[in-house]
Amino acid sequence: MQASSLPIGYTAFVDRACFAKGSLQHVVTLAKNTLGDSQLANVLIFNDGTGKPVDVDFRGSTAAVLDRLRGESKEGHTSDTAEKENEQPPRKVGRPKLGVVSGEVTLLPRQWEWLKAQPGGASVTLRKLIDEARRVGESESQVRAAQEATYHFMTAMAGDFDRYEEALRALYAGNETLFYEWIDDWTPDIRDYVKSLASSAFKQEEH
């Protein structure tokens, strides 16, 4: 299953303690049904994928709160769908081409000679090079996304913690050992959530 198809999880905190995890509906329902108004005012819910806080209006009944969430979700989905449809180029009439697509590639003579000398020939070598470049690019994108998610949560919940700035610098410098050292004595629930967000924030050495 691809990561993009996985359901988005959410984590709720009351003050500095982790209160609930799960779908947004589950977390909101649990908070609404078990917490008093003063505690609800201190609830912060974070998107596990982006590390960003989610704005939830807890006024009214549980059903009313969930109805507002569904309405906001539907509006956002409709807007995203409309944008994607507008971006799509017009379809060409006729049967779609399947499999290999030919195209023009311009290279210097020495580059053609090198390609032709590779096992499988130029086409096979080019496909391998492209696949490898895509793999590296996707890995780097995953690292950047994890760094940004970790940054968003740390800024919201740990901005006044000791060695917060040092931890951020280690995060973006890719220094995994130092990063975990700086956050080791943070409030346990916040530290553990930071670790979960940062699990893909450092490039793994290939052996």
Rank of each mutant, 00 (worst) to 15 (best):
T34Y: 02
Q142R: 05
G49M: 10
W114Q: 12
S141G: 03
D67V: 05
H77V: 11
T106I: 12
V56I: 11
D37F: 08
A17K: 03
E138A: 10
N47W: 01
L98D: 10
A82C: 10
D80G: 10
G51S: 04
E85R: 14
G94Y: 03
A82L: 10
S141T: 10
W114P: 05
G76A: 15
D37P: 12
D131E: 12
S23E: 08
A31V: 06
G121H: 05
L108H: 07
R127L: 10
Q118K: 10
R59T: 14
R95T: 14
R127H: 12
D57I: 00
N86F: 13
W112L: 13
V100Y: 01
T81W: 13
L126P: 04
A12H: 01
V54T: 05
R16A: 09
F19P: 01
G121I: 07
L115N: 04
I130E: 14
S23A: 04
D15S: 04
N33I: 09
L115Y: 02
Q25A: 08
N86L: 14
D67T: 08
F19Q: 03
Q39F: 04
S123D: 15
R91F: 11
A20Q: 04
A12I: 01
E87G: 09
T125L: 13
D57V: 02
K74Y: 04
T78L: 10
L30D: 12
Q88V: 07
R68V: 03
L24N: 05
G51V: 07
T62G: 06
I45S: 00
V93R: 12
D131M: 08
P53M: 06
H26W: 04
L24E: 06
I45C: 02
Q25E: 14
N86H: 14
P89C: 09
F58R: 00
K52R: 14
C18G: 12
V56W: 05
K92T: 15
V28L: 08
S73V: 01
A12Q: 00
V143Y: 00
A117G: 07
D15G: 02
W112P: 08
P119F: 03
